[in-house]
């Protein structure tokens, strides 16, 4: 099972549900990356990371396979997503080499939260609609 995929999701008879499900997974992965940035806001040499923007194409592959890591170290799923994107444009680089801006990260975190809430709301709505469509009497 891989972050970002919903293989064989049987809760998504409609493609909109599938899309919402993928976006919810994407938003969760993004929030996790942001959490890593904020936790390491004072770690020397730490570079802020982000993941690729959400691809709303219904026929897109759910997860982009990253290139082989230079050290051939086995990457976790989250690291694979985070590594696939170059460093974000930074607001400020401290002389310690740390590029995390807490303000920027909190803004992105708010976006990720809203994306997740909306995706979950869409899934909920379509789920309810589907259940009421098959209810007898």
């Amino acid at each position: 099972m891989i972050v970002g995929t919903v293989d064989g999701s049987s809760s998504a008879p409609l493609w909109v549900s599938e899309l919402a499900s993928r976006k919810a997974s994407w938003a969760a992965a993004r929030q996790a990356t942001i959490a890593g940035n904020i936790a390491n806001a004072d770690t020397p040499e730490y570079r802020a990371r982000d993941i690729a923007p959400f691809n709303p194409d219904p026929y897109a592959r759910p997860l982009q396979m990253s290139r082989t890591h230079a050290l051939h170290m086995e990457l976790t799923d989250l690291e694979r997503l985070a590594e696939a994107v170059d460093e974000t444009g930074t607001w400020d680089i401290a002389h310690s080499g740390n590029t995390v801006s807490i303000d920027e990260e909190m803004i992105k975190s708010g976006q990720a939260s809203r994306d997740h809430q909306m995706s979950v709301a869409v899934m909920s709505t379509f789920h309810r609609m589907m259940l009421s469509a098959v209810s007898f009497r």
Binding site: A24, A27, A28, Q31, I34, A35, I38, A39, A41, D42, I102, E105, M106, S109, S113, H116, Q117, V120, M123, S124, T125, H127, R128, L131
Partner: peptide, 26 residues
């Protein structure tokens, strides 16, 4: 920094709650 991390903790809890709440929407 502490407050920012605390805020992320709250956001995680909200996201998990709303995901589990999907099962209540039936």
């Amino acid at each position: 920094s502490y407050e920012a991390n605390l805020q992320m903790m709250r956001r995680a809890r909200t996201m998990i709650s709303s995901t589990i709440d999907l099962l209540r929407s039936g």
